[in-house]
Design a protein around this nucleic acid. Sequence first.
DNA 1: TATTGTTATACTCTATAACTATA
DNA 2: TATAGTTATAGAGTATAACAATA
Lengths: 146, 146
Amino acid sequence: MPTSTASRAEAALAGALRDAIGRLGRRMRHHANHPELSLGQLAALRSLDLHGPMSPSEMATHERVQPPSMTKIVARLEELGYVSRAAHPQDRRQVIVTISTAGAGLLEDDRRRRDAWMAQRLGVLDPEELAALRAALPALEKLSRS
Amino acid sequence: MPTSTASRAEAALAGALRDAIGRLGRRMRHHANHPELSLGQLAALRSLDLHGPMSPSEMATHERVQPPSMTKIVARLEELGYVSRAAHPQDRRQVIVTISTAGAGLLEDDRRRRDAWMAQRLGVLDPEELAALRAALPALEKLSRS
DNA sequence: TATTGTTATACTCTATAACTATA
DNA sequence: TATAGTTATAGAGTATAACAATA
């Protein structure tokens, strides 16, 4: 049974991956390079910057959180002035969330901060490891949204 | 400035990685394939299985959590009968945590469960993506403990 | 005094359930 | 009735601070 054998061989990958992701997430949450925003808030903002204005539901789907969680994330981002909420022109139930100039500025700042973060964190990796990480990024993206 | 340029180019990697890790961690925590134990508890147990008996402090260092967090993890694992705690023969301040037969059995069971989990999660990836993920695992491990 | 481990406490993030407004 | 969004509430996980026991 080649399939079973293959998948059993890769179960070790799944386990090690799960542990590493858990530890990494924990570290990232607590030693955030941007203390004002959580990982989830930052990811939502980046998604908005990348894909343009959208509704909270779409954002929730994209970031794989439940709608009430996204409500809170958007509320916090709006409170800080990084996004604005506007009524949908036709359907008044819907809300359109748009990134603000300040929000885009924060992401720009975040990019600069990541340079420093890299020196500390990704800096422990050698070029081969960095390349491996970059090559695996599409798979991680896909996995994180599947 | 080659260094600055390189690190700026890789800041995008850091950001995308951070977002993907965040989403993945969230998904893994909530759709756990082993509902009885959290990611952290499972990782601690795996670490114990891999490296042998050790003190809670060592476990905390290894898993990158604070000592009180590990106290709770170990307490839960002991409550469920997956580890046992014993006094250090010389230094009575220390505790030695050892994985139990049931704990080892749970990990064995977990390995089997991961086969099924794979079919659902890692199954969305094609062979190239799986290979990329496997190649990046050492870097992720290193990063998660650095 | 320093170290190991624990207890007490609080905070963040996320989820589910129930509700409001609109279609 | 169905859908978008929100509010209310609860639970899990982790941290920091304070404490007890031992070295």
